[in-house]
Every structure is written in structure tokens, then in C-alpha cells.
Design a protein around this nucleic acid. Structure first.
Length: 268
DNA sequence: AACAATGTTCAGTC
DNA sequence: GGACTGAACATTGT
């Protein structure tokens, strides 16, 4: 599920885990917790607490303090391709930040890849069937571009509008701009009526501004409606679909290494 | 069985 | 050496 909108909702869920004493940490999944060894994260955090939940693009990190109140190592959290954050209270009920839509995903215990238990009995869990999520101490954020939700129009123009790579690849490049994923990218390009494979450096200022406006709307809409999959074109990303705006056939291919759908008439 | 999946990363190539 | 591409990563669902 996770693109910027889903990650923002996960970040909000993490806020209900703040200021609670950490009693235990299960960091035994060596893939999800790489490059740490099992027990490394537990040793660093047990006895302390989380004090703030941040997000940039699809990456989250939690500020921590030790038992003495001194700052501890930040804990980075990434949801990968399908991870989710679950925070429970003392009696096991769900914490805040739950998805707008009810969720029927089965909760197999083996899909909990990382678990933090608080002294009040509640938990913070990274639930991820595909196991591409990640948790690590002192995450490196230096390769991340500015957040897609707050980047300025000028910055968007100069960062996105360059290079020979397809504009979609540019939108997906997290070092250019952090937060846009595959569905959001297709939605933005369709809203702005721009071909996904147009070389980014060829786009004029008006086109880049249109992309910027479309991105802002797409992100705000997705946050309000519960996810990147709620975009307007999303229902038309399948064979035999017609563009909901002009009726021309929707077509697909691979652009920027990802499956891409676009309107054969308006985005040529 | 083969392939795609709302993501990231690393090894290659130009 | 930077920019760019494609495969690999772990796992599930179609």
C-alpha cells in the first residue's frame, strides 16, 4: 500500500506510540532489520521511549530517548512494498491513524516483522507479508530529495525538469523528490495530460507547473480518501479500459522500470 | 507455472 | 564520473 499518503497515515499511527516506555523489542528478522544483528535494536532501545514521529517521502523515523532522558539513536522505518504499522493500546485495541476504509487483511503472526512492546502492554508492530519493509537505527536520509507534499513549485521545476530519462522515472526517483510511487506517478501524469515517457528535460515551464499542480491535488486527494489507489485513473489501469476523460483506449507498457498506464490520445 | 506487485538497491552500460 | 537501465531482493496473489 505505501506511497506518501499511506506512509503519512502510518506516521500518524506512530504518534500514538510516543512517550510510552519500551519494555521489549523483537528484532529477530535479520532481513528486515539488516544490517543489524538480532538484539542490536532491542539493546539500543529497551528502557527508553519514542518521542517524535517524522516522515520524508516514504521514509519514517522516530526520535528516541534512553532511560535517563538522554537522546538515543533514531529508529528508521520503511514500509517497503506492502508494510503497515499497527499500534495497540494496553488492552490490545487499535491505536489511532487507522485507514479510512475497513481492512480485511488477515493478521498472521509470522507477518509481524518487528515488534516493540511497551510496559503498558500495548505494542507497535511492522506488519508486512512481503518482507520488503525495513527497520534500522540511525537511518541515512542524505540521499532523499525534498518531500513531495511540501516541495515548492520552483524547486519542483528545477529538480524534475532535467535529464534525458522519462519524466515518470524522474518522478519516481526518491533522490529527486521523495514520496511519489507508481500509482501516484500515473495519476499525476494522467491529470496533467503528459506522456510518461517524455524526456524530463524537454518539458517546458507550463507543463512542469501543470505536473506540480496535479501532484499536489493527487497527494491531498489520496490522503483524504485513504490511499494512492483512490486516484481517478486507478480504476482504468486494466486491459480494455477507456480514458474516463476522453474515451480513447488506455494503454500500458513499462516506463521507468514499472508497469505504466496512460491515455493513448491525451498522453501521446 | 509464470508473472506482476503502491519499493529500494546494486551491478552494469553508455 | 554522472546518468541511466535492468535485474535482484522476499513473498504473495493471480
Amino acid at each position: 500500500m505505501p506511497e506518501l499518503p499511506e506512509v503519512e497515515s502510518a506516521r500518524q499511527a506512530l504518534e500514538s506510540a510516543l512517550d510510552r516506555e519500551i519494555q521489549a523489542v523483537d528484532d529477530n528478522d535479520e532481513w528486515v532489520s539488516r544490517p543489524h544483528r538480532p538484539g542490536d535494536i532491542a539493546r539500543a532501545l529497551v528502557g527508553g521511549r519514542l518521542v517524535a514521529a517524522h516522515r520524508r517521502g516514504k521514509t519514517m523515523w522516530l526520535d528516541t530517548v534512553g532511560p535517563d532522558g538522554e537522546a538515543g539513536p533514531p529508529l528508521g522505518v520503511h514500509l517497503g512494498m506492502g508494510g503497515r504499522i499497527i499500534v495497540t493500546g494496553p488492552d490490545g485495541e487499535r491505536g489511532g491513524g487507522e485507514p479510512v476504509r475497513p481492512d480485511r487483511t488477515p493478521r498472521k503472526a509470522e507477518w509481524d516483522r518487528f515488534t516493540m512492546t511497551f510496559t503498558d502492554g500495548g505494542q507497535l508492530r511492522l506488519f508486512d507479508k512481503r518482507r520488503l519493509g525495513r527497520v534500522r537505527l540511525d537511518p541515512d536520509l542524505s540521499e532523499l530529495g525534498p518531500d513531495a507534499e511540501t516541495i515548492t513549485r520552483e524547486e519542483f521545476r528545477t529538480r524534475v525538469g532535467r535529464g534525458r530519462a522519462p519524466v515518470k522515472a524522474r518522478l519516481l526517483d526518491q533522490s529527486v523528490l521523495a514520496g511519489v510511487g507508481n500509482l501516484l506517478a500515473d495519476e499525476i501524469l494522467w491529470q496533467a495530460a503528459v506522456s510518461p515517457s517524455a524526456p524530463a528535460g524537454d518539458l517546458d515551464g507550463d507543463t512542469l507547473d501543470r505536473l506540480y499542480a496535479a501532484m499536489q491535488r493527487a497527494i491531498a486527494g489520496a490522503i483524504a480518501n485513504g490511499g494512492a489507489h483512490t486516484g481517478e485513473v486507478n480504476p482504468f489501469r486494466h486491459a480494455d479500459a477507456s480514458c474516463p476523460r476522453c474515451g480513447a483506449p488506455m494503454v500500458h507498457g513499462t516506463v521507468g522500470g514499472r508497469t505504466t498506464w496512460w491515455c493513448s490520445a491525451e498522453q501521446s
